[in-house]
Computed example of a mutant assay.
Amino acid sequence: MGEVGLTRDAGYQIGVSRTLPLPAERVWRFMTSEEGLELWLGPSPSIELRRGGGYRTADGAEGEVRGLREGPRYHVRLTHRSPDGAETTVQVAVTPKGERSVLRFHQERMGGPRERARRREHWRRIMDSVEGTLTPAGQ
Rank of each mutant, 00 (worst) to 15 (best):
Q139R: 15
G63I: 07
T19V: 14
E48G: 13
T89V: 14
V4K: 14
I126G: 01
H122E: 09
G11V: 05
T95F: 02
E34R: 14
R77F: 00
L103Q: 09
T7L: 01
L134D: 05
L78Y: 10
L68Q: 08
G71T: 09
M127R: 04
A86I: 04
V76L: 13
G67D: 15
E38Q: 15
G53A: 09
H106S: 10
A24E: 03
A137E: 11
G11M: 07
G36T: 08
S46R: 12
H106Y: 15
A24M: 02
V65E: 09
P113I: 00
V92D: 03
E115H: 03
G54Q: 12
G2Y: 08
S46F: 01
G5P: 00
L41I: 12
P21V: 12
L20N: 10
R116N: 01
Q107Y: 08
D59Y: 07
V90W: 00
M1E: 05
R116H: 03
D59I: 14
D9E: 14
A117M: 12
E87Y: 00
A93D: 13
E3P: 01
E131P: 02
I126S: 00
G53Y: 05
A86Q: 05
T89R: 04
S101E: 08
Y74Q: 05
E70Q: 14
A117F: 09
D59H: 14
L78K: 13
Y74V: 04
A117C: 03
V16Y: 11
R81L: 03
H80I: 03
L41V: 10
M110P: 06
R18K: 15
A24F: 00
A58C: 07
R51V: 15
W123P: 02
E131Y: 03
K97W: 06
G11W: 00
R69K: 14
Y74K: 02
H80N: 13
V92N: 03
A137D: 09
R18Q: 15
S44E: 15
D128A: 15
R81P: 01
E121H: 05
H122T: 11
R77K: 11
P96F: 07
L41P: 06
E131K: 12
G132Y: 10
R124K: 15
R109K: 14
M31P: 02
G85M: 08
E70D: 12
P23S: 09
G15M: 14
G5L: 03
E108I: 00
I126P: 01
T57P: 04
P43D: 13
V92E: 04
R56H: 11
S46Y: 01
T32D: 10
T133I: 14
G60K: 13
H122A: 04
L103N: 10
W28R: 10
T32R: 11
G67Y: 15
I126R: 06
G60C: 11
R104F: 01
A93I: 01
R73W: 01
P23D: 12
R56F: 04
V130R: 04
E131S: 10
R104D: 01
L78I: 01
T95I: 08
M31G: 02
G60H: 13
G98F: 06
A58R: 14
E115T: 06
H80T: 04
G15Y: 08
V4C: 07
V65N: 09
L134Q: 11
G98E: 07
E87G: 00
E131W: 00
T32N: 08
E115G: 00
A10E: 12
E25C: 05
R120P: 00
R69M: 10
R118K: 09
E34A: 13
L78F: 07
L37P: 04
